[in-house]
Design a protein around this nucleic acid. Structure first.
Length: 819
RNA sequence: GGCGCGAUGGCGGAAUAGGCAGACGCAACAGACUUAAAAUCUGUCGAUCGCAAGAUCGUGUGGGUUCGACCCCCACUCGCGCUACCA
């Protein structure tokens, strides 16, 4: 080979060099520029747990490649990064190692910032925000006050979910799974009666169901839609014998005539009043027992029904029937009105209950294709589609019309009305922990609950706090912190000692990046008007019903308060999957199957890690790690390196044909790669570039080195790889004699003429079976193709002398001869 | 129980409008270079039959639509996720 000395590919050296150079040249600073179209790329910010995980690389480097691509396309791209720095692990570390949460957090941030820089991403570090800084959380507190002022924050005493391990309450969204465990630590939650702060997310339930302006994955829309749980039905008022109204919600008002009893939740406010003297003992015992049970955990669905008769009756408003009122824990106080009308003939739960306690069953819906049902003898619930029977004046109404007919009648009679119920709950934001943004409220013995005046923000966290887990807020146990004066009357008063859910901090961080720690408003209006909304947001699917609902609620609430504009904060969302361990299990320290990105960077370089993460799986699905697979990406970059740097001195001269083919492949790749960058299809971007390199290799062997076409393809290839592997692309850009940074180059222009195929291979089938392949000019007519196909020897023999009944010609693809 | 997603070689995956199944890569095998190994380069690589040319089968299972189905429809199996006495 050549005598020329080719430098070896030293990834670490190159990467460090360029990262420094890019920072010095400030090539990733994002500034308002009204001459260019903006593009705001946002990736969910990390919690500063101490170390960057391979999952962080997987979440961040593909969006970085997308951001770089858009930048080369001419967009003014902002890609910020920060830290979601409040939260429990800091406190747990404090308890375990006796180190202050603040010290722990900020030390971790310093370490992780350096790790993030080793990715070579185009983060604009001037825009970094850290949610635990007073300059940031002052605005988190400010937002709370705005919500409070607009009656979107309120305080309520009620049973709440409590994590006994984290020693704090949780929002409904943070309680997961069959066993109702804490989303953070996995401990099953218990119920506690507490006074807590809530945001009125339910005010926005209907609007949150509207995804029409957004390009979000179907899956997330489904998860959110189910979580919000809209059901259409009717609210119907029954009366007790004593005249108390008892409202129930039903999705099937047409089955009202089949209501043979009522059931109320054990916590229902009318329990005491409805309990007769004879039943008092049984009812008290049942209510006590139910209370205990909810304290342990919510029962499973297929559990045997339990319940007790109150001794009282209600009047069914549609037919004046006198029906018994029971208490049972299968009716939940938290949904609907905590009372139901039971229609045992058509509801499985009511049926089980009726059979167990010997209650009457009346069939009111008779399906046309079934024999006449009998409530006394039927073995299971009847389907709920058919024609109404045993329903007085409604008898005979058929399935589809029944709902509307009955509801209209109920509204005329003024005994019920159409209504909608949601499963979504208001967001419980109080946390009995230290390391969070204080809730800026004051409890005054004379004035009640009073907000901290805005000019006194932030309410700072004290440094000297005892953070032992006692079940009480650490701030409550601080000797002096909570004592203050009432801002209204000046009397001695106490601060709220709970802090806010950290999801509050992350509900507006995308605004924080606009103008970090802006002194007079949560963000600089000029920056907001230019950059918002977020054009593309990426992160894990696990936030579908938590952060992604909260932040949408937050944006809509702020819009209604005149702070933000538009109905949605993030127009487009894409979710990455997860990288599993080599054993196909979730990565965890205890399993010992984690992959350390620092080690990979040390042995392969960041570019190889980036390329492999984009290549090895479909980004939205993820896949198990494969430590020999990464060799392929490493090989690809080493080949790229020597391909362009090792001269070919064999003296061969490439034919025109070779060069035409090379250019064709290059522009076809450009077309595919451009489409895939747009569509977040990172794996096919890398495989497309690999294919192109294979073609370049063939052309080089055929003598294409250093021809004008070769030089053209080098600049094309390096620009296409720049978003994926920014360091090696930059180094090769410079070593092959190009000026400036490859990252400030425009994305290549498409040459459609060069990409065009002159000849195409057409598949010839007989009765759908592949019989021959013919190569014809790309501009052949269908008629020419058809004749060539029919002339093929293999086709003639397959047709065995039979005439063609039909010939289908798909241009440039296929001919199918039907015989 | 309900809703949703998925199933393609030994493995990860490709096939972006219903039109050549298995691109690209890993692993494996063979060859070149080397004292040897690594690295690199060149090939082979879905299954069965065949010396070969080639033939048949093949995208979880069973059916359907179509000239033609990994792709659309129906039923099912398995796996994953969410949700669950939600009235």
């Amino acid at each position: 080979m050549s005598e020329t000395i080719v430098p070896i590919y030293d990834a670490q050296k190159i990467e460090k060099k360029w990262q420094q150079k890019w920072a010095e040249d400030k090539i990733y600073d994002s500034n308002i520029d009204h001459n260019r179209q903006k593009y705001y790329v946002l990736t969910m910010l990390p919690y500063p747990s101490g170390n960057l995980h391979i999952g962080h690389w997987y979440a961040m480097t593909p969006p970085d490649a997308h951001a770089r691509f858009k930048r080369m396309q001419g967009y003014n791209v902002m890609f910020p990064m920060g830290f979601d720095a409040f939260g429990l692990p800091a406190e747990n570390a404090a308890i375990k190692n006796n180190i202050h949460p603040s010290k722990w957090t900020f030390a971790n941030i310093d370490h992780m910032r350096n790790q993030l820089k080793s990715m070579g991403a185009m983060f604009d570090w001037r825009r970094e925000i850290i949610s635990a800084k007073p300059e940031y959380y002052r605005w988190t507190e400010w937002f709370f006050l705005q919500l409070y002022k607009h009656n979107l924050a309120y305080r309520k005493f009620s049973p709440v979910d409590w994590c006994p391990h984290c020693n704090t309450t949780l929002a409904r969204e943070q309680v997961w799974g069959d066993d109702r465990h804490c989303e953070r630590c996995g401990t099953p939650v218990i119920k506690k009666d507490l006074n807590q702060w809530y945001f009125r997310t339910t005010n926005y339930a209907e609007e949150l169901l509207d995804f029409s302006e957004m390009d979000w994955p179907e899956r997330v829309q489904t998860l959110q839609t189910n979580w919000i749980g809209r059901s259409e039905g009717a609210s119907v008022t029954f009366k007790t014998e004593y005249g108390d109204p008892m409202e129930v919600f039903t999705t099937r008002p047409d089955t009202l005539w089949g209501a043979t009893f009522m059931v109320i939740a054990p916590e229902h406010p009318l329990v005491a009043k409805l309990t007769s003297a004879e039943q008092a003992q049984a009812v008290n015992a049942y209510v006590e027992q139910a209370k205990k049970q909810t304290d342990i955990q919510r029962e499973t669905a297929d559990r045997e029904k339990t319940g007790v008769f109150t001794g009282s009756y209600a009047i069914n408003p549609v037919n004046q029937a006198r029906i018994p009122i029971w208490i049972a824990d299968y009716v939940l106080m938290g949904y609907g009105t905590g009372a139901i009308m039971a229609v045992p003939a058509h509801d499985k739960r009511d049926f089980d209950f009726a059979r167990k306690f010997g209650l009457k069953v009346i069939v009111v819906v008779q399906p046309d294709d079934m024999e006449t049902l009998d409530g006394d003898t039927m073995l299971d619930v009847a389907p709920t589609h058919g024609r109404l029977v045993n329903s007085d004046l409604m008898t005979g109404t058929s399935g589809e019309d029944a709902f509307d007919t009955v509801v209209n009648w109920l509204e005329e009679q003024k005994i019920g009305h159409r209504t909608i119920t949601y499963r979504l709950r208001d967001w419980l934001i109080s946390r009995q922990r230290y390391w969070g943004a204080p809730i800026p409220m004051i409890h005054c013995p004379h004035c009640g609950v009073v907000p901290v005046p805005e000019d006194q923000l932030p309410v700072l966290l004290p440094d000297d706090v005892e953070w032992k887990p006692t079940g009480e807020s650490p701030l409550k146990l601080h000797p002096t912190w909570k004592h203050t004066k009432c801002p209204v009357c000046g009397a001695d008063a106490e601060r709220e000692t709970d802090t806010m859910d950290t999801f509050m901090c992350s509900s507006w961080y995308h605004l924080g990046y606009l103008s970090p720690y802006f002194p007079t408003w949560p963000f600089d209006q000029k920056e907001y008007d230019y950059w918002m909304p977020v054009d593309i947001y990426t992160g894990g699917i696990e936030h579908a019903t938590m952060h992604l609902i909260y932040t949408r609620f937050f944006h809509k609430a702020c819009r209604d308060m005149g702070i933000t504009k538009g109905s949605e904060p993030m127009l487009k969302l894409r979710n990455q999957g997860s990288v599993l361990g080599e054993d196909n299990e979730k990565m965890s320290k205890s399993r010992g199957n984690t992959v350390d990105p620092d080690k990979l960077v040390a042995s392969y370089g960041a570019d190889t890690v980036r390329a492999y993460l984009m290549f090895f799986a479909r980004w939205e699905l993820g896949a198990p790690w494969n430590s020999s697979g990464i060799e392929g990406s490493s090989r690809w970059l080493r080949r790229t390196w020597s391909m362009f740097l090792e001269p070919d001195d064999s003296g061969k001269r490439a034919s025109a044909d070779v060069l035409v083919k090379l250019r064709r492949k290059a522009y076809q790749t450009l077309k595919a790669v451009t489409r895939d960058f747009e569509a977040f299809q990172f794996n096919t971007i890398v495989s497309g570039l690999m294919e192109l390199l294979n073609e370049i290799s063939k052309a080089k062997q055929a003598g294409a080195w250093n021809t004008p076409e070769w030089k053209e393809i080098v600049t094309l290839y390096l620009r296409m790889t720049a978003p994926v592997t920014p360091h090696i692309a930059e180094e090769l850009w410079s070593l092959t004699g190009h000026q400036g940074s490859v990252h400030t180059q425009p994305w290549p222009e498409m040459d459609w003429e060069a990409a065009k195929e002159e000849e195409v291979t057409i598949v010839v089938q007989v009765n759908g079976k592949l019989r021959d392949r013919i190569t014809i000019a790309a501009d052949s007519t269908d008629e020419e193709a058809r004749e060539l196909g029919l002339a093929s020897a293999a086709v003639i023999s397959a047709m065995a002398g039979k005439p063609a009944k039909k010939v289908i010609v798909v241009p440039k693809k296929l001919i199918n001869i039907v015989i």
